[in-house]
């Protein structure tokens, strides 16, 4: 147009009197504030999710019950004196053999007349504690491994990732099973086996996140300002990349619990008679084969499995809620032109 009728010149559109409302707060929010408000948002969105709260309650009650079920002593010194279950879980003959659930035995008794309720409540100890310890160990190692790989990139990354590929070539449960088979069962060998199997996922996740975060300006800025690699990784990269690791950790507690119980069920990991969920199921699985029309002592197999399911399901619901809360950060409304 301007070439046809000359240049348009506008005068008198004087905007100096108008406050520039928005430009102020766009700059004030620093990186730290942003992170903090992000976490606060996540927590509040989880609290709002009633299903997740229910899951959290189940996990808390089951863990606490397992902890308080029987006294715990370390080196002859009792550190947990409570004993909330009605019977000693390993004591035989506290009721009739295969007694159906009743008031005195809410979940019935097993083939040796042991109280199933006491066994099942105490049984949480093994799986839950192994799940927690394994997750902590695996996540720590995996995060460090993946951070190194993702941050340095190049040759280092290439080699470290090839090693990961090898670990991923074995299904976790099979590798854990073989480790336990070769090195023997028990609490700490199980922890070791599952930790050795579990770290790889964290490494892969954190590496991917770091590759994304690395492109961000503040990391480049920190590097340009001469920050050392280690401090850049720990102060800038990991806090921003850790969210999916937390989701994975929540979900993997459930996976480890199932894995431990599976090994127990396969007759590996714990001595027969140990009140561990999978081991109980293994011992009682022959109650199924009573034949058509025969009476099925269902409580012996239903309750231990149900406890695993309940715990893992609750854990997964929590993990899902955490995941949603993290996703909510990127969800945008589709309005506007």
């Amino acid at each position: 147009m301007s070439t046809e009728r000359g240049r348009i010149q506008i005068s008198g559109f004087d905007t100096d009197g108008i406050e520039d409302q928005d430009s102020l707060d766009a700059w004030s929010e620093s990186e730290a504030d942003e992170l903090e408000s992000r976490w606060r948002k996540i927590v509040s969105s989880i609290v709002r999710d009633r299903l997740a709260l229910g899951g959290f309650a189940v996990v808390a009650v089951m863990s606490l019950a397992a902890l308080l079920s029987q006294p715990i002593s370390v080196g002859g010194f009792t550190i947990q004196p409570f004993s909330i279950v009605p019977y000693d879980p390993t004591q035989t003959g506290v009721g009739a053999r295969y007694a159906a659930p009743s008031l005195s035995h809410p979940m019935g008794t097993d083939r040796l007349g042991r109280d199933l309720f006491s066994r099942v409540v105490t049984g949480g100890r093994y799986s839950i504690s192994i799940g927690l310890i394994v997750t902590a160990l695996a996540a720590t190692f995996g995060v460090i491994y993946g951070s190194i790989s993702g941050y340095f990139g190049g040759r280092v990354d290439e080699v470290l990732m090839r090693i990961l590929d090898v670990v991923f070539a074995f299904p976790g449960l099979v590798l854990a099973l073989i480790l336990v088979a070769l090195f023997g069962g028990g609490f700490w060998p199980l922890v070791g086996a599952f930790a050795l199997v579990g770290w790889a996922t964290y490494a892969r996740i954190i590496r991917g996140e770091i590759l994304k975060v690395k492109q961000n300006e503040y990391v480049m800025a920190a590097k340009a300002l001469g920050a050392r690699d280690r401090s850049v990784i720990f102060r800038h990269v990991i806090p921003n990349a850790i969210a999916p690791v937390i989701v994975q950790a929540t979900l993997s507690i459930g996976t480890v619990v199932i894995g431990v119980a599976a090994l127990g069920f396969l007759g590996l990991g714990f001595d027969p008679g140990t009140p561990e969920w999978g081991t109980i199921l293994d011992a009682e699985s022959d109650t199924l084969a009573t034949g058509a029309g025969g009476t099925w002592d269902w409580w012996a197999t239903v309750f231990p499995g149900l406890m695993i399911f309940l715990f893992v399901m609750s854990m997964n619901i929590i993990g899902d809620a955490v995941n949603d809360a993290l996703d909510a950060q990127v969800d945008d409304i589709g309005g506007g032109g």
Partner: peptide, 16 residues
């Protein structure tokens, strides 16, 4: 409304 639109022929000549 206190704005004005002027068409500045000279300037456009100059730019061209």
């Amino acid at each position: 409304l206190g704005f004005d639109v002027t068409i500045d022929d000279d300037l456009s000549e100059r730019v061209r």
